[in-house]
Amino acid sequence: MSVTPRTHVRTTALVLPAVLAAALGACSSFDQGTRGIADALTLYRPEVVQGNFVSKEQVAALQPGMTRLQVRDILGTPLVTSVFHQNRWDYIFTMKRQGVEPQRYRLTAYFEGDTLARFDGDDMPSEAEFVQRISRERKVKVPPLQATEDQLAKFPVTPGAEPASSDKGAAPSGAQPALSYPPLEPAR
């Protein structure tokens, strides 16, 4: 028995919509079925810190009467300067972390001419608080680096020894630099 082209077209016209409906239905049920898995396995979302971070210590250093240059030295370049508000600098920064509400901080400095007249804004975090907020590692309490006289007596200083220099590799005071250096490759 041979199939005529009309029968083939009619069969295709009946079967094709059914196949498309089944495929689309499968996609939506697949999406609904995997949504629970996606909620359980949260994808990595990077922490985003945008703007100029201004710490509580920096705000404490501001004093009315400072010049614009002094304010810029303390706070950095302002995030927002407006042509329409030339006597106002805005410092804004936001922190977005996974599982935490976005945090937004603002500080505005007002100038009269070239001097700082006043400033206002949000209560800023200290530098230590900011580091703890963005750190994913466990919080480590660093002990103060202080030693008692008894503890220092356990490590006697040898006579003629100079104190350790903070610049590693620096020549001891009074030493002359080498006039010649050994060859980089051995002689052949």
Rank of each mutant, 00 (worst) to 15 (best):
residue 1 M to P: 07
residue 101 E to S: 15
residue 84 F to H: 11
residue 92 I to G: 08
residue 35 R to P: 07
residue 86 Q to A: 15
residue 151 Q to S: 01
residue 16 L to A: 15
residue 98 Q to K: 06
residue 131 V to E: 09
residue 117 A to S: 08
residue 95 M to P: 00
residue 21 A to W: 02
residue 24 L to C: 11
residue 178 A to H: 06
residue 158 T to E: 13
residue 37 I to N: 05
residue 53 F to C: 05
residue 156 P to M: 01
residue 60 A to T: 12
residue 109 A to M: 00
residue 105 Y to M: 12
residue 47 E to W: 10
residue 177 P to N: 10
residue 79 L to Q: 15
residue 14 L to W: 12
residue 66 M to K: 02
residue 95 M to Q: 07
residue 143 P to Y: 05
residue 112 E to N: 07
residue 39 D to R: 04
residue 160 G to K: 04
residue 118 R to N: 08
residue 165 S to W: 02
residue 26 A to G: 06
residue 182 P to Q: 06
residue 80 V to I: 13
residue 102 P to N: 03
residue 55 S to M: 10
residue 128 A to S: 14
residue 19 V to F: 04
residue 147 A to P: 00
residue 123 D to R: 12
residue 49 V to D: 07
residue 150 D to N: 07
residue 123 D to H: 07
residue 159 P to A: 09
residue 86 Q to T: 15
residue 65 G to W: 06
residue 165 S to Q: 09
residue 143 P to L: 06
residue 154 K to V: 11
residue 60 A to V: 13
residue 7 T to M: 06
residue 103 Q to P: 01
residue 166 S to H: 13
residue 128 A to F: 09
residue 15 V to K: 05
residue 87 N to A: 11
residue 23 A to D: 09
residue 114 D to M: 03
residue 57 E to F: 01
residue 25 G to L: 02
residue 100 V to W: 07
residue 138 R to W: 00
residue 7 T to Q: 11
residue 168 K to A: 14
residue 65 G to Y: 07
residue 174 G to M: 00
residue 82 S to P: 09
residue 170 A to K: 03
residue 103 Q to G: 04
residue 73 D to P: 03
residue 60 A to M: 14
residue 155 F to S: 10
residue 188 R to T: 10
residue 141 K to Q: 13
residue 148 T to F: 00
residue 30 F to L: 05
residue 185 E to W: 09
residue 69 L to I: 10
residue 130 F to M: 15
residue 95 M to L: 15
residue 100 V to R: 11
residue 150 D to L: 02
residue 160 G to R: 01
residue 69 L to C: 05
residue 166 S to K: 15
residue 123 D to Y: 05
residue 182 P to D: 08
residue 9 V to T: 07
residue 182 P to C: 04
residue 92 I to T: 14
residue 102 P to I: 03
residue 85 H to K: 14
residue 168 K to R: 14
residue 51 G to E: 00
residue 36 G to R: 05
residue 95 M to T: 08
residue 153 A to T: 01
residue 87 N to C: 08
residue 41 L to D: 10
residue 46 P to L: 01
residue 135 S to L: 14
residue 160 G to L: 04
residue 111 F to K: 02
residue 135 S to P: 10
residue 91 Y to C: 00
residue 138 R to E: 02
residue 91 Y to H: 01
residue 42 T to A: 14
residue 165 S to H: 05
residue 53 F to S: 02
residue 31 D to W: 08
residue 90 D to P: 03
residue 139 K to L: 15
residue 104 R to M: 04
residue 141 K to A: 13
residue 175 A to N: 11
residue 137 E to G: 15
residue 115 T to N: 06
residue 131 V to K: 09
residue 151 Q to F: 01
residue 58 Q to R: 02
residue 181 Y to Q: 12
residue 178 A to R: 08
residue 184 L to E: 13
residue 7 T to K: 09
residue 43 L to P: 10
residue 28 S to N: 13
residue 94 T to D: 13
residue 48 V to W: 07
residue 119 F to Y: 04
residue 137 E to M: 11
residue 11 T to D: 14
residue 82 S to Y: 12
residue 90 D to R: 03
residue 119 F to H: 00
